[in-house]
Design a binder for these strands. Sequence first.
DNA 1: CCTGTGCATGCCGATTGACGTATATTCTCT
DNA 2: AGAGAATATACGTCAATCGGCATGCACAGG
Lengths: 122, 122
Amino acid sequence: MDLISIYECLCDRTRLRIVQLLGEGPLCVCHFQEILREPQVKISKHLSYLRTRGLVQCERQGNWMVYSLPAKPARELARNLACLQDCAQEDPVFRRDVARLKKLTPKLAESSPCGCTTAVRA
Amino acid sequence: MDLISIYECLCDRTRLRIVQLLGEGPLCVCHFQEILREPQVKISKHLSYLRTRGLVQCERQGNWMVYSLPAKPARELARNLACLQDCAQEDPVFRRDVARLKKLTPKLAESSPCGCTTAVRA
DNA sequence: CCTGTGCATGCCGATTGACGTATATTCTCT
DNA sequence: AGAGAATATACGTCAATCGGCATGCACAGG
C-alpha cells in the first residue's frame, strides 16, 4: 500500500466522509446516498476510486454492494485511518454523518428498506 | 487548517519528501535541491503550494529562503505529521533523503556553501 | 421471460495539478 | 549603479480529477 495512494484517496471531501463512515462498519451504496445526501453516481464513482486503490473492499449481497474497510489493512493505512478518526472527531459534517448513521441503524435492524441489515450489524 | 488541504499537500511524492525533511529541521531551497536532486523550479513551486496552504512557513535570510514547519501547527496537522513521520520510517526514498541531510549537515556547519548554516543548526 | 431495483460505467466539459522553459524578483557585494 | 546568486512567477502543455447525464449490467421476483 502506497502512502501517496492513501493521501490521494483522502484528499476529497466526499471520499473522506465515506471512509469516516466505514469506520463505523460496513455499508451499502444506498446508505451512503441517504447519509451523505449525494447522488448515486457520485458516491459510486468515489467508491470505485477507493476500491481500485485498496482503501475499501466490497462484496455483493443480492442486489446490493456492501462496502467495508479492508479486514487486514496495511500498517500505513491502519495508522492513517486512526489519525483520521481522531482528527474528524471535531468536524461538524462528520459528526452529522455519523449521527445520521446511528439514526439509520435501528430502523434497518427491524425492517431494512434495502435488505442489507447485516451491513449495519456492526 | 483544513483536513482536505493537509491531504492535498501530502499526496505528491516531492511534497511528501519535502515535509519529511522539514521534520528534521528548517532548510533552504538549495538544500532541497541538493538532497532531492530535483530542479529548482519544481521544488520552489511545491514549496509555494505548501506555503499557501499553511503547511510550511518561510523566512528570508539574506539571499536565501529558509523553510520550516509551522512553529505551532494546528492539531490535525501535528497529528498527521506525526503519522507521516511514523509511516515514512520504512520507505527507502525517505531514508535516503534523511541520510543525505545528515551527511550535509556537518559540512554546512563548518563552511556553508549557501550561507544558511543557521538553517541546519536544529 | 420480463420488469424493477441497485449499482457501475462511458462520455463530456470544466477544473486542477505537475512539469518545463523562460523571465522576473530580491537580495548581496563591489 | 551593476553584476551575480538564490528564489519566485508567468505561460504553455499534458494528464488526472470531478461532476453530471445517459446508459449498461446484475440480480430478484413475478
